[in-house]
Design a protein around this nucleic acid. Structure first.
Length: 464
RNA sequence: GUCCCCAUCGUCUAGUGGCCUAGGACGGCGGCCUCUCACGCCGCUAACAGGGGUUCAAACCCCCUUGGGGACGCCA
């Protein structure tokens, strides 16, 4: 059996977007689980719109997701000679020809065809003229006049195209550079790509490319076209849908493993399974599980997926990521140890790292700069509760161990003495140590804060 | 306009002729738990686009309609 080779060929005219990441993932999984090869190829033949910056950004994003490629990146901009020699070969064998029609003339032909209720096409004017190279001349592929191009899409099944739907399309521009259709075929064939898994939007290109494969005598790969990802309005995802680039999600506090798990479930399924790690995907992924219809990107489910991976996340690692998030957005420079104590308190309540950073800010302030919510102070720090807080503070000072169980025991003892319910003191304590009415459990919070900070906050609160 | 593809709860989907009075998950709603907020747990909500066939039997097969998406470049 020939080894499986897949590829991901982004054009560096923008960031790696959600849809691209998903097809890259599918290609990666398919290659890796079969002991094959996954190639990265940068399709930068459109020099005007391609930038090095975008190339780097795309590679960064793939790295973040863990989609490591085995070969590449190749750059199409460096392979022009290769494409040209194949175009020449087609011309020599009579499968392509030079065309001297101007863009304006071709526009007219298309207009005429359209007016006749047909597909806008070039009319083949130069097809039999036997023209040679010359300024302003493009090379066109000589599309067969009759017949059908048939291929078996690994996702959608058999697809047939009447060649009459195609015209003699340009394969080399007047400036001597080759067109996408030519470049992909030459690259995929020469790189030994066996499976082309790509977006739906390329489905219509496939017949043209098959024609080129055949004209060049290359063996055909298997084609599979994965459906699009739509925005909430069921329109093609675009900037107006908010975050569409993968790295934006990193900045928003999403974990790469959550992105992966969510993305793979968008258009793919494995029974009732919902959450996947890369290791599980490598085992369970299959092309048969891919759906045929477009799917809508759903933030709610992404959030749920992310919160799941935060819950089961490795604490030191999450602490590092949280640290990054905090330093990026605030002036705090928390100690790593402190963060590692903080993280577990928020794992069950944060949907994103960004949210975690926000929820955890009360831990980071010193007592003086800690903001106290006015409404919370007036509601819970009453003259009466202040008295209790003062006593509790005294007892905390005397506590031999400052951990959550000692704290709890101490508070319970006090409740018994006074006959108070914990409910009566819980919120006042919370406001005193966090400045707000929402936080993780009180005793855990105080333990993590430590005796010093806790007492400072009690004192501060009593002055408000 | 022409061609191609697609069509199950609001969303992601299971389902490949009988197991379907259609299953799971997210969301929503209600409840339990509870020191707040979450987590967790329990329950509820909600779909086979429509119409024709084929068959003893259709969400599953065929046709039409409708709807959606994509493509028709000297972009990729």
């Amino acid at each position: 059996m020939t080894p499986i080779v897949t590829r991901f060929p982004p054009s560096p005219t923008g960031y790696l977007h959600i849809g691209g990441a998903r097809t890259a993932l599918f290609n990666y999984l398919y290659a890796r689980q079969n002991g094959g090869k996954f190639i990265l190829r940068i399709e930068d033949t459109d020099q005007a719109r391609s930038t090095q910056e975008m190339t780097d950004a795309i590679i960064d994003a793939m790295h973040w997701l863990g989609l490591d490629f085995d070969e590449g990146p190749y750059f199409q901009s460096e392979r022009g000679d290769l494409y040209n020699s194949h175009v020449d070969k087609l011309v020599e064998t009579g499968k392509a020809y030079y065309c001297s029609c101007t863009p304006e003339e071709v526009d007219e032909m298309r207009e005429t065809a359209r007016a006749a209720g047909l597909k806008p096409k070039y009319n083949g004017k130069c097809r039999e003229l036997g023209l040679g190279p010359g300024p302003g001349r493009v090379v066109r592929f000589k599309t067969p006049l009759t017949g059908k191009v048939v291929f078996d899409d690994t996702i959608k099944g058999p697809i047939a195209w009447d060649v009459q739907e195609m015209d003699d399309f340009v394969i080399r521009r007047a400036d001597g550079s080759s067109i996408y259709q030519m470049a992909v075929v030459v690259d995929d064939a020469l790189m030994g790509v066996t499976h082309v898994l790509r977006g739906d939007d390329h489905q219509n290109n496939t017949p043209k490319q098959i024609l080129i494969y055949e004209a060049l005598g290359f063996p055909l790969p298997k084609f599979g076209h994965v459906p699009m990802i739509l925005g909430p309005d069921k329109k093609k995802m675009s900037k107006r849908h908010g975050a569409t680039s993968v790295m934006m999600y990193k900045d928003l506090g999403y974990l790469p493993e959550a992105m992966l798990s969510y993305l793979v479930r968008l258009g793919w399924s494995h029974g009732d399974d919902e959450l996947f790690t890369m290791a599980e995907l490598l085992e369970k992924f299959s092309i048969e599980g891919l759906g045929k219809s477009a799917s809508v990107f759903d933030m709610d489910k992404l959030n749920w997926t992310n919160s799941h991976f935060i819950k089961i996340g490795d604490v030191p690692r999450l602490a590092n990521l949280l640290d990054e998030m905090i330093r990026q957005n605030t002036d705090f420079e928390p100690a790593q140890e402190y963060l590692q104590a903080i993280v577990p308190l928020f794992q069950p309540r944060a949907k994103t790292l960004k949210e975690m950073a926000e929820q955890a800010t009360f831990f980071l302030h010193d007592a003086q700069s800690l903001p106290y919510a006015e409404a919370a102070v007036t509601k819970f720090l009453t003259p009466e509760t202040r008295e209790h807080l003062a006593i509790l503070a005294e007892r905390m000072e005397a506590l031999s161990a400052f951990d959550h169980s000692s704290l709890e025991a101490m508070v319970n003892a006090y409740l018994e003495e006074t006959g108070l319910k914990f409910k009566a003191l819980a919120q006042p304590i919370r406001v005193a140590i966090t400045g707000t009415t929402m936080s993780p459990g009180l005793f855990e919070t105080m333990e993590v804060l430590g005796r010093e900070r806790t007492l400072e906050r009690f004192r501060k609160a009593l002055t408000l």
